[in-house]
Amino acid sequence: MTTEPIKVGMADLRAAPAPLTLITTGLGSCVGVCLWDPIMKVGGLAHIMLPDSTQSRSIQNKAKYADTGVTLLIEEMVKLGAVKSRLVAKIAGGAQMFNFPGASNVMRIGERNTEAVKKCLEQEKIRILAEDTGGNFGRTIEFSTTDGQLLIKTISKGEKVV
């Protein structure tokens, strides 16, 4: 790959055509959603921070939430020529970095993010091809728009491609 990967920050999303690569670093309880159109070779990556926009007071940034983020990512990809019915998904993240004694529901945010993302993908009728979620460790993910492969890097658990 000769081109620099496109960086996607926290609560941010990007869509790109092949041969570009999308990368997001340091996913903790956030969830990285990767969507891909295998025919048009258009990919998208959203770094989802929170499960539900309806629970929030301000929704200026749609990329922050699972529900609005997934919808917006699809829209951005369609603009680049992707066809929604062809999209497939790979997701990673949703860990729990800190373990508080007697942790409340609020602290299980990684799990809630993962559940919310899956629900949104189901509603959009997008099939999940691979999932690497949970645990208590951070992940950096790199998504190839050329072949839809997702490289997952961790500090304690090594690397893998899904």
């Binding site: 996913l27 903790g28 309880s29 956030c30 951070g138």
Partner: peptide
């Protein structure tokens, strides 16, 4: 772990 993952959890 990764600095980003740790700070991300706090920022949520």
């Amino acid at each position: 772990d990764m600095a980003g993952a740790i700070l991300g959890d706090v920022l949520q």
